[in-house]
C-alpha cells in the first residue's frame, strides 16, 4: 500500500472520529448524539483495519455499531427521549470549564505517558492473508477460561436485563 495514501487515510479517519465524537458530546438530542457516536465507531473500525486488525474491525461494525448502538436507539425511542429535553442536560459554564480543564490535564498526562513508556519500534504482523486465525488461536487456547466466563457473564446480563426492565408486579 502506498505509504502516503495510507497515512492520509489514517489521519482522515482519525480526525473524523474525533470530530464526530465532539459532535456526539455536544448534541442535545440523544438521537443525534447516538448517530454521531455510530459515525465515530465506523471511523474506528476503519482505523482497526488499517492497524492490521481486520477481524476486530468487522466485529466493531457488527457488534458496536450494529447491535449495541441500536439497542441504545431503541431505548431512546422507547422512552420517547428523542427531543432535546426542556431542562438542559448539559452543565453550566463553570462545570464545562472545569470538565475541560480535567480533560486537558488528562490528555497531557496520557501523552506524557505514551511518550515515556512506549518504544517507537513497530513489529510486523505475520500474515495479512490470515485474518481470523491470529485472534481465534489465543482466544480458544490461552484465553479459553476467560472466554467461557465471558459467555456466562453475557447470559447473566441477559437475564438481569429482562428482570430489571420487565414491567410487572414482581418488580417494584
Amino acid at each position: 500500500m502506498n505509504t502516503l495514501v495510507y497515512t492520509f487515510h489514517f489521519y482522515l479517519f482519525g480526525l473524523i472520529a474525533i470530530a464526530s465524537a465532539l459532535a456526539f458530546v455536544t448534541r442535545k438530542s440523544p438521537v443525534a448524539a447516538a448517530l454521531w457516536l455510530v459515525n465515530t465507531m465506523f471511523c474506528l473500525s476503519a482505523l482497526f483495519v488499517m492497524l492490521d486488525a481486520q477481524f476486530i474491525g468487522a466485529v466493531q461494525v457488527l457488534v458496536y455499531a450494529g447491535a449495541i448502538m441500536v439497542v441504545f436507539l431503541f431505548v431512546v425511542m422507547l422512552l420517547n427521549l428523542g427531543q432535546a429535553s426542556d431542562v438542559t442536560d448539559i452543565r453550566g459554564l463553570g462545570g464545562r470549564l472545569t470538565a475541560g480543564l480535567v480533560g486537558l490535564a488528562m490528555l497531557a498526562e496520557l501523552f506524557a505517558l505514551s511518550r515515556l513508556h512506549f518504544p517507537r519500534l513497530v513489529g510486523a504482523m505475520s500474515d495479512h492473508a490470515n485474518i481470523v486465525n491470529p485472534v481465534s488461536a489465543p482466544l480458544f487456547q490461552e484465553y479459553l477460561l476467560p472466554f467461557e466466563v465471558t459467555s456466562v457473564v453475557l447470559l447473566v446480563a441477559v437475564v438481569g436485563a429482562v428482570v430489571l426492565a420487565k414491567r410487572g408486579d414482581n418488580v417494584s
Binding site: V102, A105, M106, E109, A112, L113, L116
Partner: peptide, 13 residues
C-alpha cells in the same frame, strides 16, 4: 472518579 483517575495517571506520569 475522574479526578481520582487524573491523580493515578499523574502518579504514573
Amino acid at each position: 472518579i475522574a479526578i481520582g483517575a487524573l491523580a493515578v495517571l499523574g502518579a504514573f506520569t
